[in-house]
Design a protein around this nucleic acid. Sequence first.
DNA 1: CGACACTTTGACGCACTTCAAAGGGGGTGG
DNA 2: CCACCCCCTTTGAAGTGCGTCAAAGTGTCG
Lengths: 226, 226
Amino acid sequence: MLAHTTNLNSPLGRNGRIAPPVATHTLAGSLEMMGAAMSYARNAEIYGENEPADYLYKVVSGTVRTSKILNDGRRQIGEFYLPGDIFGLEVGSEHAFSAEAITDVKVIVIKRRAVEALAARDNEIARQLWATTGRELQRVQDHILLLIKTAQERVAGFLLEMADRIKTSNEVELPMSRQDIADYLGLTIETVSRTLTSLENAAAIALPSSRRIVLRNRTALRQLNA
Amino acid sequence: MLAHTTNLNSPLGRNGRIAPPVATHTLAGSLEMMGAAMSYARNAEIYGENEPADYLYKVVSGTVRTSKILNDGRRQIGEFYLPGDIFGLEVGSEHAFSAEAITDVKVIVIKRRAVEALAARDNEIARQLWATTGRELQRVQDHILLLIKTAQERVAGFLLEMADRIKTSNEVELPMSRQDIADYLGLTIETVSRTLTSLENAAAIALPSSRRIVLRNRTALRQLNA
DNA sequence: CGACACTTTGACGCACTTCAAAGGGGGTGG
DNA sequence: CCACCCCCTTTGAAGTGCGTCAAAGTGTCG
């Protein structure tokens, strides 16, 4: 579970920065300070669609997906959240999507009212809340750009996005199933599988196991991601 | 280039409303108070992709689209903005999409720095800025749900959305071309046209002219919009 | 009236879905 | 430790919805 594939030599981390002291006046700091740690098992629901959005969450370890079931049974995945990501932050009073743990997950939870009260007094916190929603907006806009492309482009774009976010050289350990990927990309599981095979045949990727993907030729993937 | 095709008869605009008294402590109020009126002709660019996002805009009359050209020439439309809508509000420093006037357009423009300065002092303004980004996020999420459906469902969903937003009984005067609709829905212009014809044959809508659409059977449209 | 831009309609091809069955791979019990 | 089972993934064959290419129809402005 806690497979460390990278091993940094320096205590400063790869950026050469020392972790900042938990700061007041930051959203992250408030979460660490005032938040409660919680765990969810694989496939557990963290919150449901249309439930009151009383808490917000930060992923500590594991992966979370948000999803929505359409009335014909199809499922759309909103986003995947990796360690460090904040999710569950809504402007309205209810969650627009449900959230589930893809792997075993540890999160920090904080009451929304507490954060909003903080934001009302500290405009730096308010700014960061806004910025978080803004980043979410940008992710969803990028997601739209994926959905209008061909299957090859969607899958290639997905792999590049995940590789950027997971950042472990060129080998990515995907936490989600083919079905999750399919529902994120608006494709069927068969099309995702076939596309991965064809990318492998084209020497753009390698598939040591179904969940592990080696990006062999990013340039080729990026060209597909037109 | 500067083709003026519309001409409003009344200074009050097509809604026949007088502007409400300008309130302080509201984003709308600040826009009215500190903003400058500007006009753009049909097809004029209001701002370009990757330009610095130094201003935000509120539509007074006309319709605006945001769009993005992919490197293979395809165009994706982000959103359509109708009178009363705010657009151009970014969290990052640059515009992620370009904005163009679909019809002749009047807007109120305000410097982003001015609004952010206001927000730093007045947390009610800050909250409203955040809420505006939040509504945008919700629109984009709904947009995603359209993009994973069949052509019929996308077109039906689009018509229902427009009817809700324009609110003129059951007859909608669409401000945008078939090409704009197609690029919003991720379809071709031919498919949009064929789908509208088939909805007309199914007695769900009527098409008195290509831009005017009568919703004859909303229930049928909503069922398609599964 | 004629030119031009937009929309509609038609015929055909292809990418993706659907339906079906055959692989793995990992965990549990014998 | 092997065997079996279950779930996930891959592969195959056939169907179809939408895209592409082409041309005709419609409305608007000069």
